[in-house]
């Protein structure tokens, strides 16, 4: 595993619990979440239509798209409720010295 793949997102206090921040890197965009048991990351764009999930509702380990209420499990990326039917890609996250890193392929 190469160290270069871990990208710094920001400090751990930049996200409130049960909330998310948007993180853009090169030409890709991600959502980084703080849940009760830690930090998680997914693709930033809903798999149903091209809308960013940063304005979505985070609740009970789920992110709900603000446009059409497609729901995804944040930890697994699984599409839980239509109109979303394609899973959301997830990314490994680590915390080092109060900084959040995500691993992008």
């Amino acid at each position: 595993m190469s160290e270069e793949n871990w990208i710094e997102v920001g400090s751990t206090d930049s996200i409130e619990e049960e909330d998310l921040i948007r993180f853009d890197h090169q030409d890709k965009t991600f959502c980084v979440y703080k849940l009760t048991d830690g930090f998680y990351a997914t693709d930033g764009i809903c798999t149903h239509e091209a809308v960013h999930l940063e304005d979505g509702l985070v609740m009970d380990d789920e992110i709900e798209c603000p446009m059409h209420q497609g729901i995804f499990n944040i930890k697994s990326g699984e599409a839980l409720s239509p109109p979303a039917c394609e899973d959301l890609k997830t990314y490994p996250v680590k915390v080092d010295n109060d900084k959040i890193f995500i691993k992008i392929d």
Partner: peptide, 11 residues
Amino acid sequence: IIGKVGRDIRI
């Protein structure tokens, strides 16, 4: 604008 009211409406 797309994305701006969904979360509040859902809540």
